[in-house]
Design a protein around this nucleic acid. Structure first.
Lengths: 111, 111
DNA sequence: CTTCAGGTACGATTCAAGTCGTACTTGAAG
DNA sequence: CTTCAAGTACGACTTGAATCGTACCTGAAG
């Protein structure tokens, strides 16, 4: 009932390489962009992201994000909560989350 | 002698995914960290980075950085110049270059 | 001209990562 | 209890990326 928090690295131990590798994937980046844009930082269900991939693959992606130190995963047994580690990320890599809002390249670019 | 500038994407067309993929590699990130730390932004020879990999692989990495829009490559035929696209990067992804200076995790224990 | 070092092109190899199928676990609701 | 949905574990497959060997190109210096 309580929910056990699956462990990730400490705030000071966040590795820039692992973070960039985590954000290099399109699906993981879309999750992080959603989390970074929502300033309430409330806990979310991990099926609230509408990812076009199987649940096994979603499990994989959320684990990568957790092991990179970007999110917390709260295990309730038959469901799971996701929460952005905003404070830790901002402390170690200030401005990183703001980059996720930079969005896609300017469409129909006037060349 | 003039040196032909190999083309990369326009400043507004920089893609965050391509940038993160480029920075996910340790060797490419070390090059970018060196470039970002040197505020003179002078043109550098591409063998001035002391990378522990073959020259064919170096060619590959510099191309990835150029195609991601992070550097310019100036082709002199039998040598090549590298220059950081600081202004374009700062315009599209402000604060990104500063993150490269965040360095490794705090203590001396990588992972 | 020839030589030589820096760089590229192409292919082959190796390895990591994304993906999913099958089977199992967990907790809640009947 | 049984059923069911959510999630995980494990393995297999596939794709892409990093690496290097061989061969070729380029420009400068003899």
């Amino acid at each position: 009932m309580a929910g056990r928090n699956l462990v990730g690295p400490e705030a000071d131990a966040l590795d820039l390489g692992a973070v960039f590798r985590a954000l290099a994937d399109e699906h993981r980046r879309s999750v992080m962009t959603e989390l970074a844009t929502d300033r309430s930082d409330s806990e979310r269900g991990c099926n609230s992201f509408d990812l076009p991939i199987s649940k096994q693959t979603q499990t994989h992606h959320f684990r990568v994000l957790r092991e990179a130190g970007l999110i917390d995963e709260i295990d309730y047994g038959n469901r799971k909560g996701i929460r952005l580690r905003r404070a830790d990320i901002e402390k170690r890599f200030p401005g990183l989350l703001a980059l996720l809002g930079a969005g896609p390249p300017a469409d129909t670019a006037p060349r």
